[in-house]
Every structure is written in C-alpha cells, then in structure tokens.
C-alpha cells in the first residue's frame, strides 16, 4: 500500500449534532474536509477510551458516523454531546462501486450505515435500487425516510415479524431473486448473513460486493490484526468482491480476536 500524503494521526473534530436513530443507534455529525466514498471507514478516537473503526454514513460537507451501542467504545460515543471532540483518522479502505444499472442492496441492522450513502449517490445518477433491509425487530430499523427517498422498492424483514417479511433478510432476498434479477448485489451486515447472500449471488450469477468486519488496530495494513486469509480488511477491504470472498477459507466461518486467535464467528 503506497503511503498517502497526510500523516496517519487523528484530526480533532468538533461534534456538530447528534441524531438518535433508534434506542441503540446514534448518528454523530462533525465537520471534516476529507473526501470519502461509500463503504470507507474512519478510525474514531475517543480520548482515554479507545479508537474504533466506523463507516462513514454521511459523506457530504457534514460528515457522519452512525454508531450502534454494543460495548465500551460505542457506549462512550453514544454519550457524547454536541461540542465534544473526537479524533478522526482516515478515511481508509476500499468502497462500494455501483457499476450496473439495477442494484439489489442488502443490509442487516447497522450494516445499513455504509450502504445508505451508496444508495443516495447511486440514486442521484439514475440507478434503480431495490433494498432488502433486515433487522431483529422493528425498533432496530433506522434511516427509513432517507432510504425511501432513494430506493425504487424498499423491502423490510424482521426476525420477530414486527414489521414486513417475518424471517431473515436472506430468506427475503431468496424470494426477491426468484422474481427479479439485478446487475449486482451490494451487501453489509452480520457475516453469517453476508455468507448466505454470497451463496445466493453465486447461485444466481450476480456479481457481489460486500463489506466485512474484523478487529482493527493499526488500520494501515501492517499489524496483521484484521487479517483474513492473507488479506487485510483495513486496506484490501472492508469491501470485497464476491469473487475474492469465495476464495477466503475463513469467510463466514472464522474471525480473529484481539489476540489474533482464530475463533468461530
């Protein structure tokens, strides 16, 4: 990876506003002048707490990250107030590229964060977008108005049946693919879900791009923490083509913990 022009150290930014998307998820807006593409992520420094990878969920002049509270770092992020400061390093990694005309976007839960800006950009240049958005329950959905504005068809699934299709989003996608075909599928969510979508994409002969998560430390491809079969999610990903994913033995099966141990997903 050839070195970039600017130094890899956190830029301190001020939080402008915070939007509560649902009981567990907040979007944090800040001003920063980097240029990012949908699917890229930043390393977010919460001083004295942690530095964690977050997809850029708003790419305009006002940048945004959309954070689901799952642990120490994310709960600290969710407690921040406008005017507080965080550090931003990046953007890093590969991104989604909508090359075909008809797109099937598949998101699981917070996996919508990198896909929403992709949908907006693609919609603005006239792409036809069908969205399949799955969550455990109705209360875990987010961005619904934003997504309505840029999709031709918005399909929702919930594991508990509280809204839309009752079941997993992968089952919903299987149904959709029986009726329609697409030029490509773009996907982000829990890896087990991505694996199912990758299998469906392969079965139907549709090219896939999907974004993976691994434990990140350096974020620049040298510490080997986010390694998956010789690829590094921080620089070779997070967005991988279906073709590469099909060559990764660990995909859908194993991840690495913070020690580098190979553990089941």
């Amino acid at each position: 990876m050839p070195k970039k022009d600017n130094l890899e150290l956190p830029r301190i930014v001020k939080i402008l506003d915070i939007v509560e998307e649902n009981p567990d998820v907040k979007t944090i807006f800040f001003e920063d002048d980097f240029e990012a593409y949908p699917g890229q992520f930043v390393m977010v420094w919460i001083p004295s707490v942690d530095e964690v990878p977050m997809s850029v969920s708003y790419l305009g002049e006002k940048k945004g990250i959309t954070v689901k509270n799952v642990g120490k770092a994310t709960s600290s992020l969710c407690k921040l107030k406008p005017g507080d400061k965080i550090g931003i390093r990046g953007p890093h990694g590969t991104f989604f590229e909508a090359t075909g005309d008809s797109l099937l976007v598949v998101a699981g839960g917070i996996g919508i964060a990198p896909l929403a800006p992709l949908m907006e950009n693609a919609h603005n240049i006239g792409k036809q977008i069908t969205l399949a958005f799955g969550a455990k329950s109705k209360s875990e959905l987010l961005f619904i108005n934003r997504l309505k504005g840029c999709s031709r068809e918005l399909n929702i699934s919930t594991d508990d049946g509280s809204l839309g299709f009752h079941g997993f989003v992968s089952d919903l996608v299987e149904d959709i693919l029986k009726k329609q075909s697409f030029d490509e599928i773009l996907c982000c969510g829990p890896e087990i879900m991505i694996k199912k979508i990758a299998d469906l994409a392969k079965l139907n002969g549709i090219p896939l791009q999907a974004s993976l998560e691994r434990y990140m430390k350096c974020g620049v491809g040298i510490c080997d923490s986010c390694a998956i079969d010789g690829f590094h999610v921080c620089i070779d990903g997070p967005v991988f083509s279906g073709k590469i994913l099909s060559e990764l033995a660990d995909f859908g099966r194993f991840r690495r913990d913070a020690c580098g141990r190979r553990v089941e997903l």
Binding site: E8, C218, C259
Partner: peptide, 21 residues
C-alpha cells in the same frame, strides 16, 4: 487502541505484544 500513530519521520506503535499464544 490507539496503538498506532504516524509522525513526520516515522511511526510510533504500542501494540503491546498481542499474540495468540
């Protein structure tokens, strides 16, 4: 984290010897 930061003439890491054993 942060375990990595770049400076003008090099990088500073404090990985702290992570390893799977």
């Amino acid at each position: 984290n942060p375990t990595f930061v770049e400076t003008e003439h090099g990088i500073i890491n404090a990985m702290g010897l992570p390893n799977p054993g």
